[in-house]
Computed example of a mutant assay.
Amino acid sequence: MPYLLIEGEYRIIGGAPDGDSIRFYPRRTARWEQLEALSKTHRIRQNKDGGVQLRLDAIDALETHYTPGVSGASIEHQPLEYAHAARDALLGFLGFEQVQHGKDEKVMASQPERVSGFVLSKFVDVYGRAVSFAYQGTPPERDGGLVFVEDGLLSQSANHHLLAQGLVYPTYYSGLYFELRRVFNAAVASARRGKGLWPQDRTTQGFELKTVTTLNNRVVILPKLFRRLIDYLELNQGSLSLSGLEAYLRARNDEVVVLSRGQKTGLHFLVEVKGRKVRLKEPPENLMFLEK
């Protein structure tokens, strides 16, 4: 299936971009209607100027500001050294310089204020975001055209760049083609040799969850696992007991395929808890989550 090419610009002032999400404004807002027709899933959520939040496909960056889904009373983050490194690498790749951030992670100033580029997208997720490959510069085809993504074009994306630098985790969903996963996995294999966050990764090795600060400042893990743990702990209203984690994950119903076995299962079967130690049984690149 081809991807829709949408030409436009990235804007970051007043927003809080991170390593896998940024706001994009198309030259023609009618492109969002085209994307909805192509996606046949959810409606796009755009602001008054046509801007839409992108979810960069195939990657997940450490959280700079995550609001738990129960009460929304707190804002949590993962180790900021790596969360900010991914954010800064994305902004630099797209062409933003001298970016100034406030304490709330929002951008106060940048040079330039807007950067031209294009995205390739074919899917709208449940949150109304355009799931996309993001690019800088002039597009290879016309705005609004359909493009088949091959290895060379994929390797020019911000998505691939961040994976190759080891600054984000691979996180695959069912809309991503096998051939593209193969290209991303090659970048991951290379980065795992010592780049970016990988020397500190504890996703499959496991870690002891002593306090919430463990998640905020001390361990580098797959962001999806971080989000589920933070949501679970907030639901427990301060209790650090992990006795109900499996039941909680079961209720969240994250369906996932273990790619090496072609086995469909639930995330609750893949998260192992022994006492206070938590780990994911499979490496992230061996998993494909099913879109909701």
Rank of each mutant, 00 (worst) to 15 (best):
M1E: 14
I6H: 06
E9V: 00
Y10L: 07
G15H: 12
P26I: 08
R27V: 11
T29C: 06
T41R: 15
Q46R: 15
N47P: 01
N47H: 06
G51L: 09
D57M: 14
D57A: 13
E76W: 11
H77L: 00
P79I: 07
Y82F: 15
A83T: 03
L90H: 03
G92Q: 03
E97I: 00
Q98V: 00
V99E: 10
V99K: 08
D104T: 09
D104K: 02
K106I: 04
P112A: 05
E113V: 11
R114A: 14
S116Y: 08
G117N: 03
G117H: 01
L120C: 02
S121H: 02
F123M: 11
V124L: 01
V124I: 13
Y127I: 05
S132A: 15
P140Y: 00
G145T: 08
V147Q: 02
V147M: 05
H160R: 08
L162C: 09
L163H: 01
G166Q: 02
L167E: 02
V168T: 10
P170H: 08
S174W: 01
A186K: 14
V188G: 03
A191Q: 05
A191G: 06
L197T: 08
P199W: 04
T203S: 12
T204D: 02
T211R: 15
T213D: 15
T214L: 09
L225D: 03
S241A: 12
A247E: 14
Y248M: 04
L259A: 08
T265S: 10
F269S: 12
V273G: 08
K274N: 13
P283K: 03
L287P: 06
M288D: 06
L290W: 12
